[in-house]
Computed example of a mutant assay.
Amino acid sequence: MKTLRWGIIGTGQIANAFASDFRYVKSGELRAVASRNKASADAFSAKFDIELAFVDYFSLINSHEVDVIYIATPHVHHYDLAKACILAGKAVLCEKPFTLNEAQASELYELAERHEVFVMEAMWTRFNPVIEQVLEWVEEGEIGHLQSIQASFNFVAPTDPNHRLMNLELGGGALLDVGIYPVFLAQLFFGKPDFVQNQAVIGDTDVDVFEQILLGWENGQLASLEASLISCHPNRAILSGTKGYIEIDSEWFCARSCRIVDEANNERAVEFDFPGMGYQFEVDEVNRCLEEGLLQSPNHSWQDSLALMATLDEVRQDMGLYYPGEEQPSHEDLDHHHHEHSHHKH
Rank of each mutant, 00 (worst) to 15 (best):
H64M: 10
V92W: 04
H346T: 05
A72Y: 03
K345V: 15
R36A: 04
H163L: 11
V76T: 14
K38P: 10
A15Q: 07
F44L: 00
E211G: 06
A19N: 02
K47M: 08
Y245D: 07
E226H: 07
D49N: 15
I61A: 00
Q296L: 05
R31M: 11
A186C: 01
I8N: 01
F153L: 08
Y24G: 03
W217Y: 04
A200N: 06
V201T: 05
Y109P: 09
C94S: 07
E140P: 06
Q104P: 08
L4Y: 14
Q328A: 15
H64S: 15
H300K: 08
A41Y: 01
M277Y: 13
S152V: 07
A84E: 06
D49L: 15
E107C: 05
S20R: 06
E263F: 04
L81C: 07
A237F: 02
E107H: 09
I260A: 02
E226M: 13
L4W: 12
A269L: 12
E29W: 12
H163R: 01
R31P: 00
H115N: 13
E51Q: 09
A46G: 07
D177M: 11
A151W: 00
G10I: 00
L185E: 06
N198T: 14
E136A: 15
E132T: 15
A105W: 12
F153V: 13
F98P: 00
F281H: 02
L4E: 15
F253H: 09
P161A: 04
E267C: 13
G220Y: 11
Y322D: 07
N235D: 08
F155S: 10
V138T: 05
Q197A: 14
A19D: 01
V196M: 10
A174F: 12
M120E: 03
I50P: 02
Q199L: 15
D49G: 15
R164F: 15
L239F: 07
Q199C: 13
C85N: 02
R5N: 13
E142P: 08
G244D: 01
D80V: 10
A307I: 02
G293M: 12
G10H: 07
V178Q: 06
F118S: 02
G171H: 01
H341V: 07
L176Y: 08
S106V: 05
P129N: 12
S27N: 13
S240C: 13
Y24W: 11
H344P: 00
I143E: 01
G171E: 08
H337C: 05
L306D: 11
H338Y: 05
G173I: 08
T159Q: 07
E327S: 15
P97R: 07
R268E: 09
A32Q: 02
I180H: 03
F189T: 01
Q296F: 04
F189L: 02
M309Y: 08
G28Y: 05
D208Q: 11
K83V: 04
E65L: 03
E292A: 09
V25Y: 02
I50N: 00
S224Y: 09
I86L: 05
A72K: 04
W217I: 06
E332W: 11
Q150E: 14
S301R: 00
